[in-house]
Design a protein around this nucleic acid. Structure first.
Lengths: 215, 215
DNA sequence: TATTTAATTTTAACAATGTTAAGATAGATG
DNA sequence: CATCTATCTTAACATTGTTAAAATTAAATA
């Protein structure tokens, strides 16, 4: 199952911090774009070592700054993870749009893109769920990114059923999201292994399962 | 939405630790059933304060023992949480069976029981997912409890479709589990709030959504 | 340009956590 | 009674998130 391998997100690194003199990256006192570098470092650690191993100090180390430097760009660890999650939602949205464009059934493509993203970025996908979204005060950045990614699903539903009632549409959307989100989560945790012994084509599994949705 | 309120699991406390002399619980050097008391204390803290606030030292404090005492009953914090999760799966199984028995549509009852359990024990349900199940070596206790709870779903599927092929059954099971698990998770994280503004009857929502499953 | 100001970053420290090692206690076994 | 073993405690260690104060650099101002 090569698909289970974590894949770097390729978080956009600002180039402002490019070192000017010489080849060896001389340590400038002012980093240039430490905020972006911290998000990138955290994303990398998350993809490589998982959530348990992700410490704020480790992120700072990886970014080549001191332990307290992050606090000038993020209120606390939670805020940094929030930014990482927000970047994740942007990538999730891209994955859905890409698979939708490549699939003949647009709507099913969205679901496949959702599941594929989860399989390719397991730790990040787990971070995006859970208490970082439903915490006391989710950051506006996170809320916006989450809403945008949800919009892809909703737009596809609305387009597919132009003459459905408002209530019908919302229930359809909830059901579609639920089955796709549940499939992603259960696959991620290996809970469906007894059901799909030996099958390693996640895309085919996702299609077979979503086919059962009478939407 | 009173249903969102965390509810104590009522983990079975062994009575071996009942204090013998006098009314005030005199601190015996030997606890009697410290293992059970630790699981109970951890479950309580989880329900009251959530995962973030659950520390091994805090659990020990609550159980009235020293910080290192748990290490004579659990290899580490992970192992203790594993035991808590296992107890959670037993309770989840009970919730599914209860709702299935009360509902006229048995199969839908299972799903409703699943979602209701998640809403009533949010932190515990989150613990039961995630890396504690899909870790390097899940404990046999946890595996067994998880498999038993999954069995409720599978049995109901098999009973409802006696003449379906093996493959069909597994896909149906995966789809049912996915939609119910996804609904539970998304509701828990408040992500479906825009879809069900003002609706607080989780049971009705669960029925409306699962009705869309052509299984 | 010279000087002040504000934005970054560092060092140092704090309390809390997970974990381990060594010693103390209690109940069981001979 | 003596010994053994399971159970629990005290003490310590490295690591973590976080804060306060000082140091350094870039930007703004005169």
């Amino acid at each position: 199952m090569t698909l289970y391998l974590p894949v770097s997100l390729g978080v956009k690194r600002s180039m402002k911090s490019t070192v000017k003199k010489g080849d060896n990256p001389k340590k400038n006192y002012h980093h240039g774009d430490l905020r972006g570098a911290l998000v990138a470092a955290a994303s990398d650690i998350l993809a490589e070592d998982g959530m348990e191993k992700l410490s704020l100090r480790g992120v700072a180390r990886r970014a080549g700054v001191s332990q307290a430097a992050p606090y000038h760009h993020f209120e606390n660890k939670h805020a940094l993870l929030s930014a990482v999650a927000a970047a994740g939602f942007v990538a999730l949205r891209a994955s859905m749009k890409k698979h939708a464009a490549e699939s003949e059934d647009q709507f099913q493509g969205v679901g496949v893109g959702y599941v594929m993203f989860a399989m390719e970025n397991p730790a990040l996908f787990r971070l995006m769920q859970g208490p970082y979204f439903s915490c006391d005060e989710p950051s506006p950045e996170l809320l916006a990114a989450g809403e945008a990614s949800r919009g892809v699903l909703l737009d596809n539903i609305a387009a597919a059923y132009p003459d459905a009632s408002e209530r019908e549409l919302r229930v359809k959307a909830a059901a579609s999201w639920s089955i796709v989100h549940g499939l992603a989560t259960l696959l991620l945790d290996g809970r469906l292994q007894p059901m799909f012994e030996g099958e390693d084509d996640v895309q085919a599994i996702a299609k077979a399962v979503t086919d059962l949705l009478a939407v």
